[in-house]
Structure formats: C-alpha cells, structure tokens
C-alpha cells in the first residue's frame, strides 16, 4: 500500500478537526475536534511505523491515546463544571481572562 493515501486521509482529518476548533463555539464540539486532530496524528504515526517496519511509531500512538484520554477527562470535567454553574456553553462568551 502506498503511504500517501494514509497521509492524505490523516491530513484531511487534521484539517477537519482544526476547522472545527476554529469555527465551532460549543466547548463539547471543540473537544471532539481536538480528539479528531489527535487521531489524525495517530494515523500518520501508525502509517509511518508500518512503512518503516518498526514499532516506535505504534508505541508513540499509544502514548498519544493516553494523553488524549487525560485531556478528555480534564476537558469534560471543565464542561460539566461550567454546566453546573449555569455558565453559557459558548467559548466566545467565556472571556474573563482577556487582557
């Protein structure tokens, strides 16, 4: 199999995720899009690992999954906290850290 197709798919997924992060305002969707970007990265890693015939990339992908899981925990925790405090679930309105 040609490496190119995997990378093209990976790039498409990454671009979709990035566009989602930039466009959507719901924190939940932003979180989903972040996951999409991470998995695009994972796909590229796995493809390279496969093409090169060693396991480093696969191990790295596992690490990324762990990080992604942690990130989801924190992110979802934040979203639940926002919901409980009856804060708007809209990142554009959460601007109290502006300079």
């Amino acid at each position: 199999m040609d490496l190119t197709w995997y990378l093209v798919l990976s790039a498409l997924l990454f671009a979709t995720g990035a566009a989602g992060v930039l466009i959507r305002r719901s924190p939940l969707v932003i979180l989903l899009c972040l996951e999409l970007m991470l998995n695009a990265g994972n796909l590229a890693l796995l493809a390279f690992a496969r093409a090169n015939g060693d396991e480093d990339g696969q191990i790295f992908a596992l690490v990324v999954m762990v990080v992604a899981a942690c990130e989801v925990v924190v992110g979802l925790g934040l979203i639940v906290a926002m919901y409980r405090r009856r804060l708007p679930l809209n990142v554009d309105e959460m601007r109290s850290l502006r300079g």
């Binding site: 990035a18 992060v21 930039l22 466009i23 305002r25 932003i30 990142v91 554009d92 959460m94 601007r95 109290s96 850290l97 502006r98 300079g99």
Partner: peptide, 21 residues
C-alpha cells in the same frame, strides 16, 4: 510593556487556536 501586549490577550479561545495553528 504589559500595556503594549495586553491587547493580544483577547479572551477569545478560538482566536488563540487560530494563532496557534
């Protein structure tokens, strides 16, 4: 210096993401 650069901190998460990307 803070006065000069504080405008960059708009508080828009999406603007930060755009800058990052």
């Amino acid at each position: 210096v803070g006065v000069l650069v504080r405008d960059a901190q708009s508080g828009f998460v999406r603007a930060y993401a755009l800058l990052l990307i």
